[in-house]
């Protein structure tokens, strides 16, 4: 079985995010990019499936994502069998373009299962799993918290996934392969890859570079969204800040609660 894990580098949210001069995008120049945390979860789940079944795990990234190589090498250090960097999707591809590049790759290198993060913090034009599922014509399920290969009738190949809803409800679905899964959280916290191993992997190189050519997509989506303006939310209703030592702040909080009758005395 072959599992492909498309991964995306996104701005580290600890950074102060600035807007470009024309006001329609974020200024990527000085931003630190990190792996989308849900893709990290997806990779972990894929590795768990690999451990259970011996599947091959391929980490997939777009060459235009800043620092994506670091994430790809990390994926290998964690146990992915291969890493592939796709080119030819333009400078700052949106989800639609990204999905077309991944679909292009999968057309030539089919996968039984695609597991990717349920969302990314900046996928304004939609999330990758559903877009990709629709482009490929594969069944797809999002907000998944566990994936396991169905072993009891072996044919046709399928996975059993758990999909979550609000209020703690969930559903267990059996999905025929090939399928696309949007992962919310892996069964266990993503493993740690020691830097020395990552560096060894890096020194060995071995990211395959592929220019897949974009799969045909929706005609409308292809032109991208017309972003008129990006801005930080105006702080219309910013909290009133309590200051002072920890003890003073604690005192003010207790007073607030007391004035509402929530603390007696």
């Amino acid at each position: 079985m072959r599992i492909v894990v498309p991964m995306k580098a996104v701005p580290d949210l600890v950074e102060e995010i600035e807007i470009t001069a024309d006001g329609t995008g974020i200024d990527r120049e000085y931003l630190k990019f990190v792996l989308n945390e849900w893709d990290d979860q997806a990779l972990e789940e894929a590795l768990l499936v690999k451990e259970a079944t011996g599947a091959e795990v391929v980490a997939l990234g777009l060459g235009s994502d800043p620092d994506i190589d670091a994430s790809l090498y990390t994926a290998i250090a964690k146990g992915a069998d291969r890493a592939v960097r796709l080119t030819g999707a333009g400078e700052v591809p949106d989800t639609a373009t990204r999905a077309r590049a991944v679909a292009g790759y999968l057309r030539d290198h089919p996968a039984d299962l695609v597991i990717t993060g349920v969302q990314a913090p900046d996928d304004l034009d939609g999330q990758l799993p559903a877009t990709l599922g629709a482009l490929l014509g594969h069944p797809h399920v999002s907000v998944v918290v566990s994936v396991a290969l169905v072993t009891d009738p072996p044919e046709p190949p399928a996975v059993r996934v758990r999909q979550e809803f609000a209020g703690g409800r969930a559903a267990e679905l059996v999905v025929d392969l090939p399928a696309v899964i949007g992962l919310q959280a892996a069964r266990q916290a993503p493993r740690y890859a020691p830097i020395s191993r990552i560096r060894q992997v890096m020194a060995a190189g071995g990211i395959e570079q592929v220019d897949p050519g974009l799969a045909p997509g929706s005609a409308t989506g292809a032109s991208g969204l017309a972003v008129r303006r990006m801005h930080a939310p105006e702080k219309t209703s910013h909290a009133q800040m309590l200051t002072g030592s920890a003890d003073e702040v604690a005192g003010q909080i207790v007073d607030l609660l007391r004035s509402r009758g929530l603390v007696k005395g």
Binding site: A130, T131, V143, A219
Partner: peptide, 23 residues
């Protein structure tokens, strides 16, 4: 933008050939 929205929104946009804005 619930589980249902995350499942269907982007997929329907592709199928229907429409533009999608999320969140």
């Amino acid at each position: 933008n619930s589980t249902v929205g995350l499942d269907l929104g982007a997929a329907l946009a592709v199928a229907w050939d429409a533009e999608l804005v999320a969140y």
